[in-house]
Computed example of a mutant assay.
Amino acid sequence: MQQTGATGRRREATRERLLDAGRDLLAREGIQGASVEHICEIAGYTRGAFYSNFSSKDELVIALFEREFAALVAQLEHAVDPQTYAGLGVAQALPAIMERFMELRPPDRDFYLLHAEFALRGVRGDIGGQEFNALWQGLLDQVLAVIQRVLDDLGLRLTIDLRSAGTILLGTYDAELREAVVAGRPMDRTLMLQTLPALLLSATEPVESRPPS
């Protein structure tokens, strides 16, 4: 039993190292440019070790994408913990959440490059493209659920479609992340802590204002 546990931990460590190497290489050379051999070289493993964990480079790409988005969702969940905005009014709660999220997830050039690679594959319908699109849809659903949960907690409801609000928020965040990565600077705090929360609040109303049915 102990041996099995130790073997499992070694296997997981190998898998994570291969994913780390893949993240580094794919961000620098793109999906097409990165080879299994080079990933193994960076990770310090043989091709045999690679193929005992992944059936192909495309499987590693999907696993990497799943890991990146799982980390993003985990950071978002930490940011929206009620303790983040406990005791704050509505106008202060959303900026507090955004500030916490920015602390947990500062601009990451490699993540942005990876996401761009994944997105192109999804648009082109290349190998793994459908998987990417399904994973992206799953991420969007999780983000929308978080937005809804926070608004419910604050006693607010949207006056526009939830998916439309999510698209606006994610689109603004993505555009600013791109600008920050290109310019090599932090993300614009005024945009993220004032403009974006104000934009969301402008599309909400207190739940108690709902007219009687």
Score class of each variant (00 low, 15 high):
134 A>K: 12
100 R>A: 14
72 L>M: 13
46 T>D: 14
162 L>K: 02
10 R>K: 14
211 P>A: 05
12 E>H: 06
73 V>Q: 11
119 A>P: 01
102 M>R: 13
141 D>E: 09
88 L>S: 10
104 L>Y: 02
167 T>Y: 12
166 G>N: 07
174 D>E: 12
207 V>N: 14
162 L>S: 00
132 F>W: 14
44 G>R: 05
128 G>L: 11
198 A>Q: 14
87 G>Q: 10
151 L>I: 04
181 V>Q: 07
86 A>M: 11
18 L>Y: 05
36 V>P: 02
40 C>G: 05
192 M>P: 03
151 L>D: 07
13 A>T: 04
100 R>N: 10
177 L>P: 00
108 D>V: 03
92 Q>R: 15
72 L>W: 06
190 T>G: 07
148 Q>R: 15
158 L>N: 03
83 Q>L: 14
90 V>S: 03
24 D>G: 05
103 E>R: 13
14 T>A: 12
45 Y>L: 04
144 L>F: 08
2 Q>G: 05
164 S>H: 15
47 R>H: 10
49 A>L: 10
88 L>M: 15
201 L>C: 01
53 N>L: 09
173 Y>V: 03
94 L>H: 11
131 E>N: 08
213 S>Q: 13
10 R>M: 12
4 T>I: 14
9 R>E: 13
195 T>H: 15
165 A>P: 02
148 Q>F: 06
110 D>W: 08
134 A>P: 00
25 L>F: 06
167 T>G: 09
113 L>I: 04
39 I>G: 02
195 T>R: 15
47 R>K: 15
181 V>S: 05
106 P>C: 07
26 L>E: 09
15 R>N: 04
3 Q>S: 10
6 A>T: 10
168 I>G: 01
109 R>I: 02
200 L>Q: 01
53 N>V: 00
63 A>S: 07
87 G>F: 08
82 P>L: 05
95 P>K: 15
77 E>V: 01
103 E>W: 09
32 Q>A: 14
161 D>Q: 10
209 S>P: 03
198 A>C: 06
17 R>S: 07
17 R>A: 07
129 G>A: 07
153 D>H: 15
126 D>L: 12
5 G>N: 13
81 D>S: 12
155 G>L: 09
191 L>M: 14
190 T>C: 06
169 L>E: 09
186 P>Q: 12
40 C>D: 03
19 L>N: 06
67 R>E: 07
121 R>I: 04
49 A>D: 15
42 I>G: 02
135 L>S: 04
189 R>Y: 08
188 D>P: 01
114 L>W: 12
186 P>K: 07
64 L>N: 05
176 E>K: 05
59 E>S: 09
121 R>G: 06
98 M>S: 10
165 A>H: 02
92 Q>A: 14
189 R>L: 06
129 G>N: 06
184 G>L: 01
125 G>W: 10
175 A>I: 12
145 A>Y: 00
92 Q>P: 01
148 Q>S: 12
121 R>P: 01
77 E>A: 04
151 L>H: 11
6 A>C: 05
108 D>N: 14
49 A>M: 11
147 I>Y: 11
65 F>M: 15
205 E>R: 15
